[in-house]
């Protein structure tokens, strides 16, 4: 498995990460080495094996759809980079 520089750039864009041009080749090689290593999985035939989502095969527990707590907006927004009037501020999206 060998990832091209273009593929790495495309994956980085999906992940909202930027990779400096001069670091692309090195990163592509590292990621390719990891994928080569991971490809050892193909040595085993897994057809018919049910994928394991939970060790004890327990489904996600659901709770009743009831209000259990109220949000203290000021407390949770105290850690935000930029807020105004209880709203999170980001750069203008619509011109």
């Amino acid at each position: 498995m060998s990832l091209s520089d273009e593929q790495v750039s495309a994956i980085a864009e999906l992940a909202r990460l930027s990779v400096p041009r001069d670091a692309l080749r090195g990163l592509a090689q590292e990621l390719s080495a990891i994928l080569d290593f991971v490809a050892q999985m193909n040595a085993v035939d897994t057809s018919g094996v049910e994928p394991m989502a939970h060790p004890q095969d327990v489904p996600q527990r659901l709770r009743p759809d009831e209000v259990t707590e109220t949000i203290d907006r000021a407390r949770y927004q105290a850690v935000a980079p930029a807020v105004s009037h209880g709203l999170y501020l980001v750069p203008r999206v619509i011109e």
Partner: peptide, 26 residues
């Protein structure tokens, strides 16, 4: 993050994540 994004991207899910979850069961 990049490895994970690749493994979950369109067309690769079965080859990676699903395969790994099957191996987990084994």
């Amino acid at each position: 993050i990049l490895i994970g994004t690749y493994a979950l991207s369109a067309g690769y899910y079965d080859a990676y994540y699903r395969k790994a979850q099957q191996i987990r069961r084994l």
